[in-house]
Design a protein around this nucleic acid. Structure first.
Lengths: 144, 144
DNA sequence: CTTCATGCAAAACATTTGCAGCTGG
DNA sequence: CCAGCTGCAAATGTTTTGCATGAAG
């Protein structure tokens, strides 16, 4: 499953004639991990042991590139720390723990009717959306 | 309508023994304006003519305070420019133009069933949510 | 009066950019 | 080879913080 997604992204890079460097491969592997919704800093930190010369700038550049290709979903937050989902790079709902910042995907209902209603009501052409639920995860609730 | 909301926020400040300065009042008036979802920079810019000595730090401090009181809704974006809604400080859906950054409120369906489904599926205690649609507004579509 | 708010400047972060040197294909 | 990538450092932009002065209650 996981490696399928890496393979997909690798193919995409090749398709547009971009290079597959060891650094990029490592980033793709981290992003493809469905459980993680890593921040730039976390990707950097996880790579550092294997790539001692690694620089955060390379992570930023690669993520900018993957965003442009539509191969990663960027989740911005008011505190300025963005998180990334490379496993499902299309809009989908998340639950986010306000305490430990864990992010989980949700498998649930279709938003299509709402998208159409929003378009009808406002005259917008809707291209993207974002639905997130914020709260306390079971672990953090237990620690209360 | 608009002044009702300002009155509400003023009352809230008094209730917790915070001071009502001319600067704060001006910020509240801007925030209460339903049409605007201003950024910090815009609030600052709109106040500057009337408050020549105004500093952006004061806007930041006041917004931090209002956030803590739950009197303003903060909308974060990946590009780092946050926007604020003081007219309806509770979660509600928005449509956002990707080109001109206009933000409009949406009057539409109830998310309650989804909140319950998310809680059931994940074990989270859901406290907040955010639903935004991104696209092109009628004006920007016309300019294409 | 006393406490809290303002506003300046400096600091703290996240992110972007410039550029020399390196390397994948 | 050589276009494109890496990685360092400097620049940028937003937000936070420290602190002396000023004003609300």
């Amino acid at each position: 499953m996981i490696s399928d997604r890496v393979t997909q992204m690798v193919a995409r890079l090749k398709a547009v004639n971009l290079r597959l460097t060891p650094q990029r491969l490592a980033i793709l592997r981290i992003l493809a991990d469905s459980e993680g919704h890593p921040s730039i800093e976390e990707i950097y930190r996880r790579m550092k042991p294997d790539f001692p010369t690694m620089s955060p700038a390379t992570v930023y550049k690669t993520l900018t590139l993957l965003k442009a290709l539509g191969e990663v979903l960027e989740l911005g937050f008011p505190d300025g720390v963005n998180r990334y989902d490379g496993s499902k790079p299309y809009p989908h709902p998340h639950v986010i723990c306000l305490k430990c910042k864990k992010i989980m995907d949700l498998e649930m209902g279709n938003l299509q009717p709402w998208i159409e209603a929003a378009a009808r009501e406002t005259g917008f052409r809707i291209l993207q959306h974002r639905l997130d639920f914020f709260g306390l995860c079971p672990e953090c609730r237990a620690k209360e």
